[in-house]
Amino acid sequence: MISIIRTMWLTFLHMFHKRATIQYPEEKIKLPARWRGRIVLTRDPDMGERCVGCYLCAAACPVDCISLQATEDEHGRRYPEFFRINFSRCIFCGYCEEACPTYAIQLIPDFEMGEYNRQNLVYEKQDLLINSEGKYPGYNYYNVAGLAVKGKDKGEGANELAPVDVHSLLP
C-alpha cells in the first residue's frame, strides 16, 4: 500500500521536472561535432576533391556498403570516377573515416536521411561531395605524398628535397 502511494508521489513530482523530450522536428537536437551521422566527401583547401580513390574506406567497411572506382586526371591526380554509399546498409560505425588517409570521408552530425523508398538511400558522389574541408581545414594530401600533381611538382611538397640530379656525382 505504502509503495503504491510512494510510486504515485514520485510520478507526480515528475510533472515539475525539466522535460527530456524535445519537440522534434520543430525543435532540433544539438549534436556533438564528433557525432557519427551522414557520410560526406570533403574538399582540399584548393577545393579539389580530397578523395584519391584508395579503396581503404571500402575495405574497412564491415557491411561492404562503399564502392568506388579510382581514376586519374591528366596531371596524375587521382579522384573517384564514381563513389557510392548504400546508406540502407551503412551502420555508421565510422571505420571509413578512420581508414581514410586523406581526411576525405567524414561523418557529420546529421542523421536526417529517412526515405520512403529504399533505393533513394543509395548516394552517389554528387550526393556525398560537399564544398567544405570538414573537420580538418588546411590539410592537403598531395602536399605530403611525394607524388607530382598539377600545381605541385616533385620536391615542392612539405618535407621534400628538390629532385635528384642524376647526372651529378658530387658528394
Binding site: 562503399i66 564502392s67 568506388l68 557510392r84 540502407s88 533505393q119 538511400l121
Partner: peptide, 12 residues
C-alpha cells in the same frame, strides 16, 4: 569490398 553497394545503383 563493396558487395552491398556495387550493384545498388540499379537495384538496392
Amino acid at each position: 569490398s563493396g558487395r552491398t553497394s556495387m550493384n545498388a545503383k540499379d537495384n538496392v
